[in-house]
Design a protein around this nucleic acid. Structure first.
Length: 566
RNA sequence: CGGGGUGUGGCUCAGUUGGCUAGAGCACCGCGUUUGGGACGCGGGGGUCGUCGGUUCGAGUCCGACCACCCCGACCA
């Protein structure tokens, strides 16, 4: 490709507001251009990169036995109603209506479509397992797009869906996909951490995200010094035992004219924070009151709580609700005796965090203003409806594997989900015929990979103050050939490289100065730069330099190809 | 949805207490000179100042509404 004719307009000045390197560089180098917020044009150079990323993904997916296909982008809305995702999808679903008033969702993910496809056939256990995937535009009406390609409203995603007889068979595929993803990202120049994550509205049993560490990433996760890694929403830790050797003392009420915060309790009673009980009242989507009870030095993890009580949404209860519906007092809520006063029709679930088993003789509120209780002990003084892990992890805590948790930030570039029977249960007829002649639901998995976000992540990792530094696997061109007043010789080299299958962009512009060509070359970031000038010819050939190391030397015409393939 | 901010040639921005024909740099076009780190000279084209309404002799500038975009938060595979 000749630069003089290539639709690549690099910019000298780019908005000072753009602080994220990948967004700034991709725009400045003319790879992408924003249409409306979160919707991007991929210009020729950007599209070359995008296609190369897709090519790597395709090669590895095919190698793993997955089969590429494509589904419609408009999904019949009835399908989303079947799985109730019109309400629970985490992103606002975009809808369109056709002239006959038929409603469609603009696909943000395609579980329903693939299940709907598969259930149209009579599938035998002999057909299983299989894994179908596609590259297709996805639409998500995000509240806020940000960071160039990092968070957008329209993007190309590789999404794959696997169908299995049972969990055991699924697990083979899940592990395989995990390996495939690691390999894909490595080929793209990215190191990823596999992080346990929340499955969110997709449902299913568990999932993992692939995260590229980066300061500007939006995903926060915890990593143990011994290897365990989990998203902050689901990260587990071992609460340390505090005073278990103490004897249980008698429950007693004490005057406590104090403020309503945890710290007020500590200051007033001069007792440690961990010995206090923290009580947080929520209301869920069904109107149930949920009292989360946890050790005072920990915080409640709403995601864990939501899963434990099987709620779709949670909100904090208001002070009025606490007083008028639960007959308690904000700042003095207690699990002790709170259920005794409930009116008919008011449902209250007491959820205790396992950390309450690490302390004895706790102190805390009494459901009455300015009165506290001492020596509260679980089981003896109150019973939990549900007991489990609802604690928010933090840096420095002990990880489940015995290491110490460290807080990390990163960009989520892919994820893999165990869907289990989530979709095949909800969608009628999503069954195969087993060996014994009975119909059984599919056991499923799905596997997503954002192409544009991966591109942004590559730039975040691979750039310097002059521009991007593309790994060879995804560079728009391998060679940026620059002629400084030696167009005739350069043209020969250009044709020679093309004939030998080298992807080259030839900067043949007469009107651009040497400095401009060099600056552009650094900005665009092709792995190799080859300069042909009077100076290089005098030294016996062409100057070749590597973008990633800056290493530079003069090579003769005959050595050029060898240098590029080294 | 809450808080903050910005809308002026394609881009980055200036434009004073309301006052002459609305400016600069970059980009673009023409001619010429240039080629090892974002060249130079001369000439040129391009703006209903986000939209609508209001105040005024007069509005880019003041007021109101709306729209778009950006940042923070909420939210979020």
């Amino acid at each position: 490709m000749k630069r003089s004719k290539y639709f690549l307009k690099t910019l000298k000045n780019v908005s000072s507001q753009e602080k994220i390197a990948s967004a700034r560089l991709l725009k400045q180098a003319g790879f992408i251009e924003e249409s409306a917020a979160g919707r991007f044009y991929f210009l020729p150079a950007g599209q070359r990169v995008q296609q190369k990323i897709m090519q790597v993904v395709k090669e590895e997916m095919d190698q793993a036995g997955a089969q590429e296909m494509v589904s419609p982008i408009l999904h019949p809305l009835e399908l989303w109603k079947e799985t109730n995702r019109t309400n629970t999808a985490g992103f606002e679903l975009m809808k369109v209506t056709d002239r006959r008033d038929a409603d469609f969702a603009l696909g943000g993910t395609a579980e329903e479509m693939f299940v709907d496809l598969v259930r149209r056939y009579k599938i035998s256990y002999r057909d299983l397992p299989f894994n179908l995937y596609q590259f297709s535009p996805k639409f998500r009406d995000e509240l806020r797009a940000r960071g160039g390609l990092l968070r957008v409203r329209e993007f190309i995603m590789k999404d794959a869906y696997s169908f299995h007889r049972d969990e055991e068979d699924f697990k083979v595929e899940y592990r395989k996909m995990s390996d495939v993803y690691t390999k894909i990202f490595n080929r793209l120049g990215l190191e990823t951490t596999i992080v346990e994550s929340d499955n969110g509205y997709i449902g299913g049993e568990y999932c993992h995200e692939f995260i590229v560490d980066s300061e500007i990433g939006e995903s926060r996760y915890f990593k143990s010094t011994k290897g365990y890694a989990a998203h902050e929403d689901v990260a587990r830790f071992k609460p340390d035992d505090k005073n278990l050797s103490e004897d249980m003392l008698e429950l007693k009420e004490v005057d406590a004219p104090r403020g309503t915060t945890m710290q007020d309790g500590v200051n007033f009673h001069k007792m440690p924070l961990w010995q206090q009980i923290k009580d947080v009242m929520f209301v869920d989507d069904r109107g149930r009151y949920i009292l989360a009870v946890i050790r005072g030095d920990y915080d409640v993890n709403e995601t864990k709580l939501k899963h434990l009580v099987k709620a779709i949404t949670l909100r904090p209860a208001t002070n009025e609700e606490i007083r008028e519906k639960l007959f308690s007092e904000p700042g003095f809520i207690s699990p002790v005796g709170i259920k005794n006063k409930l009116e008919a029709g008011v449902e209250l679930l007491v959820v205790a965090d396992s950390s309450l088993r690490t302390i004895k003789n706790a102190y805390g509120g009494s459901n009455k203003k300015n009165l506290d209780l001492f020596n509260i002990n679980i089981d003896r003084d109150f019973k939990a409806d549900i007991e489990g892990d609802i604690a928010l992890a933090a840096a420095g805590y002990e990880a489940p594997d015995g290491g110490i948790l460290e807080e990390k930030r990163g960009i989520e570039v892919g994820n893999i989900f165990q869907l289990g029977y989530h979709y095949s249960d909800k969608m009628r007829g999503a069954v195969y015929t087993d060996k014994d002649g009975t119909e059984k639901p599919f056991y499923m998995g799905c596997y997503g990979l954002g192409i544009g976000r991966t591109m942004a992540a590559i730039v975040e990792v691979w750039h310097d103050d002059k521009g991007m530094i593309w790994p060879e696997s995804v560079a728009p061109f391998s060679v940026n050939l620059i002629s400084l007043g030696e167009n005739e010789q350069a043209e020969k080299v250009y044709n020679y490289l093309l004939e030998n299958g080298v992807e080259v962009i030839f900067d043949d512009r007469d009107e651009a100065s040497a400095g401009e060509k060099f600056a552009d070359s650094d900005l665009v970031g092709c792995p190799y730069r080859v300069v042909i000038s009077r100076k290089s010819l005098e030294k016996g050939g062409y100057e070749i330099s590597k973008r990633n190391s800056g290493e530079q030397k003069i090579v003769s015409h005959g050595e050029l190809l060898k240098q590029l393939y080294e």
